[in-house]
């Protein structure tokens, strides 16, 4: 790692001020950023740790909306959201491994927007609102491609508000070494309609499979996807799977999610 200083502000306001320094970066749980720093793929002058900001931690459920502080670790979400939003809690409880879940945070995951991360699919499928240090952003506007979001320089994800669907399921085809999603599908069924978000598959990052949503809004069963296919062109290809393999998996995992929701 290159050398840097670490700030530990106690409030969002102080963290925003600390991030004004040139080349400063926010540090959430560090489960992605620290390995990145070790590889010298980032060279911040200063890291601003968000771990000591009490107002960014915790899970609450009020009037059909689950709100999760941006600094809340996955293990806490898995435990505390289980009653209010079981599919979201199950997703959080299957990220990485137990030690990673004790450190990694939802805000860090959404700010990084790894194309194979789990949380972006839940936020997009739920129609979540990303609350930042300066504004509120609808999930449909927030995710803008692989590792790209609507966040500005120095803007912090302070909370995420999830409308709780009538039923939901996250189906993850896990890459066993990294435990990221080779393909993951989050399906959320609301009174207003079905939302299907896919992670791990596309070179453009998380996306909504709108054809599947339309088909499921007409008829909610796995057979409704018959004849629908994802075009392989924009799928990710790597040593774990070809474009065609991932495109196929999107259908398979979506059908599993439909059956799980019932």
């Amino acid at each position: 790692m290159y050398s840097f200083e670490v700030d530990k502000p106690g409030s969002v306001e102080a963290a925003v001020a600390a991030l004004q320094i040139e080349e400063a970066m926010a540090l959430g749980g560090g489960q992605t950023l620290i390995p990145t720093l070790k590889q010298r793929l980032a060279s911040p002058s200063r890291l601003v740790s968000l771990a000591g900001i009490a107002e960014m931690k915790g899970v609450s459920a009020v009037d059909g909306v689950v709100t999760i502080g941006g600094g809340t670790p996955h293990a806490t979400v898995a435990r505390e959201a289980a009653g209010a939003y079981p599919a979201l809690a199950a997703l959080a409880g299957n990220i990485g491994d137990p030690a990673v879940r004790n450190r990694g945070t939802i805000g860090g995951s959404l700010a990084n927007n790894d194309p194979a991360a789990c949380y972006p699919s839940a936020a997009l499928a739920s129609g979540a609102t990303i609350v930042t240090s300066s504004r509120e952003i609808a999930a449909d506007d927030y995710f803008q491609g692989m590792f790209t979001t609507a966040l500005h320089e120095g803007e912090i994800v302070t909370a995420v508000r999830f409308p709780v669907p009538q039923a939901a399921s996250y189906q993850k085809f896990e890459q066993p070494a990294s435990r990221f999603a080779l393909v993951g599908v989050f399906l959320a069924r609301f009174a207003e309609g079905v939302r299907v978000a896919v992670t791990g598959a596309s070179e453009d990052g998380v996306f909504r499979w709108s054809e599947a949503e339309e088909a499921l809004n007409k008829e909610f069963r796995a057979d409704a996807l018959t004849g629908l296919a994802i075009a392989p062109e924009n799928m990710i290809a790597d040593l774990h799977g070809t474009k065609e393999y991932r495109a196929h998996l999107v259908s398979v995992m979506t059908k599993r999610a439909i059956r799980a929701v019932g």
């Binding site: 670490v6 620290i34 070790k38 890291l47 137990p98 030690a99 004790n102 070494a177």
Partner: peptide, 28 residues
């Protein structure tokens, strides 16, 4: 040293963490 193997697991405030993926100043 890449957060994969878990040989470095310790408990911080009673919770298992990978000590190669946390800064010492965070444990202050």
């Amino acid at each position: 040293d890449t957060s994969q193997c878990g040989a470095c697991v310790v408990h911080v405030d009673g919770q298992a963490v990978k000590s190669c993926t946390m800064f010492a100043v965070e444990a202050d």
